[in-house]
Design a protein around this nucleic acid. Structure first.
Length: 419
RNA sequence: GUGGGUGUAGCUCAGCUGGUAGAGCACCGGGUUGUGAUCCCGGUUGUCGCGGGUUCGAGCCCCGUCACUCACCCCA
């Protein structure tokens, strides 16, 4: 029997798990300040929702989905991303007929059957945010700024925001054809996968990291030239809003997204210290998605931030998260009578909002004090028979080693006042 | 799916040209019959990833296999 979790499905245990939680909370905090409501979504959906919404030809759908059949012969899939499910949930609840834009956030695990490597697991956690119902470029900028705010609050300083526009579908169609013709004599016949990409989605060839492909595509035509006026105006507005918001970005006309639903705005937050999987957050506009899954026209823009990857980025930058110790007061009872008293006092402190713990397992004085030290508590409370007879407890300040006797009647008040 | 690297104590690792396994940290106890973090002393923990082969003898060599890891691919 091995206790290892399934491949690519990591455990997070203290103290690292606490930092992961802190990252998630930091990502959510700006959203709460910006009017985003909470969305609780299913971890799996009907397979067809993803294959249609994300796109049949994408790698995510064609080879990375965890798909299973339930007892009712329905084909279900663990969600590989959150946006499609969020749009479905909005339509299911009819939120698009209420006040617009609908602004929502969600958080939780996503699943993709991939070969694990640094920064890429089969189960990973994202915080997502979506704003649907208007195509206002100020919303694109708002979302980007909120992500930027979260990363800054966490203390990340090396992130680079890449920004691009994919134009509207008609722009893309014309560009794809031009690119296809440009690519075919240069990288055509290299391998079957590249040929397939040239045919289905030539933009993706630009994302290839192999050096020979990189150099071969260095001078490829860019989409920027063929953008329609409406999409161009939208993009200019987004750039201007970001500048007004004080969010730095770099224009990256070669930015490519792997999911089919993106159009117009796309962006990525990239961390230079992370190795191959360096995108810690990304998103874009998806104005046609609702109709693709059978809904009414419903423009939308959103992002997903990788919680685990962001933790890796923090570790790469050696940012030490200020995680306050979970325990303020630690009891060191000596003997059964003192222990019973300590158990009751700890409960009283906790009910009053003071974090408290005690030495379990009937350890000796030395061991119990050691446990007090490790808990991070600022104060230890030594309670023995001698003290109980005198009606006092010894309160020791673990930071400077000073110790005073405090009468039991006033102990809780005294400890609460120490905080 | 394809390549490279690595598997030895809870963790990080050492282990020479093959001779039967070690260190640091951690943990537990003692020095201090009621005081942590420092110091000193002592102690526990191993199917050397797994299976086979070569050999008098394998942690070390050979074959297979599994896992982890990094990279390609892809992406948060």
């Amino acid at each position: 029997m091995s206790f290892a979790p399934p491949k690519g499905v990591p455990d997070y245990v203290p103290p690292r798990s606490g930092r992961l939680l802190a990252v998630r909370d930091a990502m959510v905090a700006p959203l709460r300040l910006a009017g985003y409501g909470y969305l609780e979504l299913p971890a799996f959906e009907e397979t067809a929702l993803f294959s249609r919404g994300v796109g049949e030809t994408t790698d995510v759908v064609s080879k990375e989905m965890f798909t299973f059949t339930d007892r009712g012969e329905r084909s279900l899939t663990l969600r590989p991303e959150g946006t499609v499910g969020a749009v479905r949930a909005v339509l299911a609840a009819g939120l698009e007929r209420g006040a617009l834009p609908v602004k929502l956030w969600y958080a939780g695990p996503m699943f993709r059957y991939e070969q694990p490597q640094s920064g890429r697991q089969r189960q990973f956690t994202q915080v997502g945010a979506e704003a649907m119902g208007t195509d206002d470029p100020a919303l694109d900028a708002e979302l980007v700024a909120l992500a930027d705010q979260a990363y800054r609050a966490l203390g990340l300083t090396s992130l680079v925001l890449h920004l691009a526009t994919l134009g509207d579908p008609e722009d893309r169609a014309g560009y794809s054809e031009r690119l296809r013709q440009w690519l075919t004599p240069r990288v055509g016949g290299l391998d079957a996968e590249t040929d397939r990409r040239i045919e289905k989605n030539p933009l993706r060839v630009l994302d290839d990291k192999r050096p020979e492909v990189r150099t071969a595509t260095a001078g490829a035509p860019l989409l920027t030239d063929g953008i329609g006026t409406a999409a161009k105006a939208h993009h200019d507005a987004v750039r201007q809003h970001l500048t007004d918001l004080g969010v730095p970005f770099v224009d990256d006309p070669r930015l490519v997204r792997g999911l089919d639903y993106y159009r117009r705005t796309t962006f990525e937050f990239v961390h230079p210290l992370l190795g191959a999987q360096s995108t810690v957050g990304a998103g874009g506009r998806y104005d046609g998605l609702s109709q693709v899954i059978g809904g009414p026209p419903l423009p939308g823009v959103g992002w997903a931030l990788g919680v685990d990857r962001t933790l890796l980025a923090l570790e790469a930058e050696a940012v030490v998260a200020a995680t306050p110790p979970s325990t303020a007061v630690f009891f060191v009872p000596l003997g059964a009578t003192a222990k019973a008293r300590a158990v009751a006092l700890v409960g009283e402190l906790r009910r009053g909002g003071t974090s408290a713990d005690l030495a379990y397992g009937d350890r000796g004085m030395k061991g119990a004090m050691k446990a007090a030290d490790r808990s991070g508590a600022t104060h230890a409370v030594v309670l023995g028979d001698r003290d109980l007879e005198a009606g006092v407890a010894q309160v020791k300040d673990l930071r400077d080693g000073s110790q005073t006797a405090v009468t039991l009647d006033t102990l809780v008040d005294h400890l609460e006042a120490q905080r």
